[in-house]
């Protein structure tokens, strides 16, 4: 179980965004990740009012919802010509737009940002389709390191039953049919989602995911999530002591990182 108290203030993974002062970001960034049909949106629908009840302002956002690229992505998915690299790039455009125009301004204002999927889903979909991991990680390196990432995990058979019971049919993209993982939608879904799960599993440790067993009933999952989210707020707000001790040092390190980014 990660110790949220030790999380550093919000910063980027590898590459600073031009024009962002990271020391201004006061809110919390909470990510819900996991494969398709695992129940992420159900949980977010519960978490948002719960956080608001506790007095937090909450922004909820999610993949392909950007003002810039959301519509374009939906249209592109209607056709049958969206290649894997193009898809990755389009999702990254969507992500960058939401990060810079929604998430960062909200964090600056001290809002709790609850996001349904994050850069990890973009990475996972690319890696499941065979793209190079080092390339993907460098490309995604402008993402903010969240305060917490909850990975809702379930085995693929669980996802299959949720799709069949809940929706009644398989989705083209969720089945990875663009890359033909199997001879029919069911087989393709199983193979593609199994790959996605393996990729998410491989991201869990390096990116500090907290794994939540999502095979349990939704109410139990919700209780686990609440307990974990509460711990983020239990952590002393970038403790007073730390703020007194370290701001100069922190600003310096951000400046140094920015300068380094410009140089190489």
């Amino acid at each position: 179980m990660p110790n949220y108290k030790d999380r550093p203030p919000l910063s980027y993974y590898r590459t600073a965004l031009p024009g962002v002062d990271y020391s201004e970001l006061q809110g919390k960034l909470i990510v819900i990740e996991g494969p398709d049909a695992v129940g992420r949106s159900t949980q977010i629908r519960g978490l948002k009012p719960w956080l608001e009840e506790l007095g937090h302002a909450v922004l909820d956002t999610g993949m392909a919802r950007s003002a810039l690229a959301g519509k374009g992505i939906k249209e592109a998915k209607q056709g049958n010509t969206l290649g894997p690299v193009t898809m990755t790039m389009y999702y990254l455009t969507d992500f960058a737009d939401r990060l810079e125009n929604e998430i960062i301004p909200a964090l600056r204002a001290g809002v709790v940002v609850l996001t349904d999927r994050y850069i990890y889903s973009v990475m996972a979909r690319a890696l499941a389709r065979g793209e190079n991991r080092a390339w993907m990680e460098r490309t995604a390196g402008f993402a903010l390191v969240p305060h917490a990432t909850f990975y809702l995990r379930a085995e693929v058979q669980h996802l299959v039953s949720r799709v069949v019971v809940g929706r009644g049919s398989f989705d083209y993209w969720e089945s990875g049919l663009d890359t033909r993982f199997g001879r029919n939608m069911h087989d393709s879904f199983v193979r593609y989602q199994s790959r996605l799960i393996r990729v998410f599993d491989s991201l869990a440790e390096p990116y500090g995911f907290e794994v939540i067993d999502a095979t349990r009933p939704p109410v139990e999952v919700f209780e686990s999530l609440k307990a974990s989210v509460a711990r983020i707020f239990d952590a002393p707000e970038r403790s007073q002591a730390e703020q007194l001790r370290k701001p100069a040092q922190r600003v310096q390190s951000i400046r140094a990182a920015k300068a380094a980014g410009r140089r190489d």
Binding site: L17, P18, G19, A67, L68, A69, K71, G72, E75, A76, G79, T81, L82, G83, V85, T86, T88, M89, Y90, L92, T93, A96, D97, E100, N101, F142
Partner: peptide, 30 residues
């Protein structure tokens, strides 16, 4: 594929340097 998105971004001046870079990479990838 990205024509409408680029048009929207330009018309409303929504682009940041990063999203401008990425939409051109999307165009190029396609």
């Amino acid at each position: 594929l990205v024509k409408e998105t680029t048009r929207r971004g330009k018309k409303k001046e929504m682009f940041t340097p990063t999203s401008f870079s990425l939409i051109h990479a999307t165009d190029f990838a396609d």
